[in-house]
Nucleic acid binder design. Structure first.
Lengths: 186, 186
DNA sequence: GCATGTGAAAATCTTCACAGCA
DNA sequence: TGCTGTGAAGATTTTCACATGC
């Protein structure tokens, strides 16, 4: 909407777009403050800024990618160029054939370099390694000061981390496994 | 646990493993029936069967993969070999260079063949195409009788389908975007 | 004794109706 | 008049305590 030059948006507009009720939008916003103007709606630019601030997306975050297989490459393509203000600042792999090569001007490093993340002020990481290496990778990342992990290993492989570290797991097979339940219900 | 030869598991065991309370486990199960034995716990084999039945994972589901880029290849590696009883039964792409090649004994077909899905009794699909092609792909899939879609295009590209069709969207960049909120809270 | 299954209480989330303000 | 912000009502979910059965 911002790109289309719109100035304001109402809770009804947003609700229709998302498929929810207008009062859900308003109630949710109200927990964080008064963003709108009565009779007018929400100023789009201001709203974007407010939400980015709430979600802490108002600064650029450096991210390390561990594992640059097919999945790692796909992630780079998706997250690569600054969506939501992320900056893939380092890439690691265990495969000697890949180490030293460059992807998008970033040199692939050996996983033994992971310990340098703290010094480089990188505290987010994406785990795209094989399921067997996932826990070990997580341990190393935590030791290197990483505070948030996006984990692509299957959820039953059960990554354990100290609870000050936030892990979000994307388990592709499990998401697929949700579909049959819904399609049979209809 | 089953693979380790265990016979029974208690709600406490399951709860500890998942990081929730035992009574949450029991209450949830109780909505679907009486699976356990008082004083003993749940028979693991029987429990697996019951849950698979509830989730409709007790039969093999055929799945079509559309788009066999890096992401598509990664998905094949993850879902490829029968996890949760899925069977990747067809692969489609738009790139003439890929069409006709084989991956895991499956010949890559042109997307114009998507209409054959109904005849082949494939009613689940994975969309791993570029964001611009996502809606069009979804439309074609729906027309071909697909009832459930796992969609990897960004959620703001906003796939629209008839509501009898279930779509689950995995938006990698958005999941990553959740992390900063949690790490700053600690 | 031990662990499930469940009604009831407590907490939370959703919906609504309308006051308040541009 | 139009749309936000919000207290209160309604619905749902979570927690708990204990009766039930092996």
């Amino acid at each position: 909407m911002s790109k289309q030059g719109q100035q304001n948006v109402s809770s009804r507009n947003l609700a229709d777009f998302l498929g929810v009720n207008p009062w859900q939008i308003r109630k949710d916003f109200s927990y964080f403050g008064d963003f709108g103007t009565r009779g007018v709606g929400y100023n789009i630019e201001k709203l974007i800024k407010q939400i980015n601030k709430i979600l802490k997306l108002d600064v650029v975050h450096k991210v390390a990618l561990v594992g640059v297989d097919n999945l790692g490459s796909a992630i780079l393509a998706y997250v690569g160029l600054g969506v939501y203000g992320f900056n893939i600042a380092a890439i690691f792999d265990i495969d000697p054939k890949k180490i030293g090569k460059k992807i998008r001007d970033i040199t692939i490093e050996d996983v033994s370099n992971l310990q340098t993340l703290r010094k480089r002020k990188i505290n987010l990481a994406i785990i795209a390694v094989s399921r067997d290496a996932a826990q070990q990778t997580a341990d190393t990342l935590v030791k290197a000061g990483v505070k948030g992990i996006l984990n692509f290993s299957p959820c039953h492989s059960h990554i354990t981390v100290p609870k000050k570290v936030k892990v979000i797991t994307i388990d592709i097979a499990m998401d697929l496994a949700c579909l049959p339940y819904y399609i049979s219900a209809s």
